[in-house]
Computed example of a mutant assay.
Amino acid sequence: MSNLLQQLKQRTNQISLLQTEFSEMTQYATELQMYVGLGEIEETASQAANYIEDLISEDNFDEKNLDVTISSAINSILQEVKSFGDVNIKTRQSTLRLKAGRKYQAQYVVHTVPGIEEIKSYMLRILSIPKDMRDNNIYACRILPDGKYLILNKQLDQGHLLLFSNNGLFIRKVVTFTGYPYDACFFRNNTAAVTLGSEYQTALMDIQKNKITKKLNFLNSVLQ
């Protein structure tokens, strides 16, 4: 019984660790990391569930009571009494009910990526670019967490970071800058990053305040 309790304690600690990892993963992991991590968690959880099921099937949780019937001849122990009584083991079905999760449940948490032949394309949104900005080159388009759109373009000798609404309507120019823009991405906390290839810099921009907050310089050899 002590060995069984020790094994169950180890399994409990293992499940608690999985719960902590799952909580951290849902906050910080990417979808790909979640898919891989959930697969590993599912495998470990399935092993734990199988272990409990095996214990139940082997009657490890059944309650066992020992009843001892004392022989009436105990007072005649000196008269060749061969037994003090009989020991019978009475087994009663366990009241424990295991509620195990579905096998391979991780695959239902993250949607399976369809094959190329299953992907159906359709028009999602059209961005309405102002007439005075249509003669330009678009280098990047990014969708923000709130559904708005960022467009990085270059017009003549200037680059622009443009903000559009969820419906595709132009809102404003976020930042105008010089230099050859290469790409853009959304960083965090209303901050976007734009690489300026000709200046060997990455500019961090506050989308709400419409200004460049910081520039990171890189050596020419690093970019080459």
Rank of each mutant, 00 (worst) to 15 (best):
S2V: 14
Q6L: 07
Q7S: 12
K9E: 12
L17Q: 09
L17K: 08
Q19P: 04
E24I: 13
E24Q: 12
M25C: 09
Q27T: 07
A29R: 05
L32N: 10
Y35T: 07
Y35G: 05
Y35N: 14
E42H: 04
E43S: 11
Q47S: 06
Q47M: 03
N50F: 07
N50I: 10
E53T: 02
E53Q: 06
D54N: 12
L55Q: 15
S57L: 13
D59F: 14
N60L: 12
D62P: 03
L66E: 04
L66A: 06
I70H: 07
A73Y: 09
S76N: 12
I77F: 12
I77L: 10
Q79N: 11
Q79T: 02
K82D: 15
S83F: 05
D86S: 14
T91Q: 11
S94P: 03
T95R: 08
A100W: 07
A100D: 14
Y104H: 11
Q105A: 14
Y108E: 07
Y108G: 06
V109C: 05
V109D: 06
T112A: 02
T112R: 10
V113P: 05
V113R: 04
V113H: 04
K120I: 15
I126A: 02
I129D: 02
P130Q: 08
K131E: 15
M133F: 15
N137H: 08
P145V: 11
D146V: 15
K148I: 06
L152A: 03
L152M: 00
L156E: 14
Q158I: 07
L161W: 01
L163G: 09
N166S: 10
N166W: 05
N166Q: 14
F170P: 01
I171S: 07
K173T: 10
V175L: 00
T176H: 02
F177P: 01
Y180I: 01
Y182T: 05
C185L: 15
R188K: 07
R188Y: 10
N190K: 11
V194W: 02
Y200Q: 09
L204C: 03
M205A: 09
D206W: 00
K211G: 02
I212M: 13
I212L: 03
T213Y: 00
T213L: 04
F218Y: 15
L219T: 14
S221A: 03
S221Q: 08
Q224D: 07
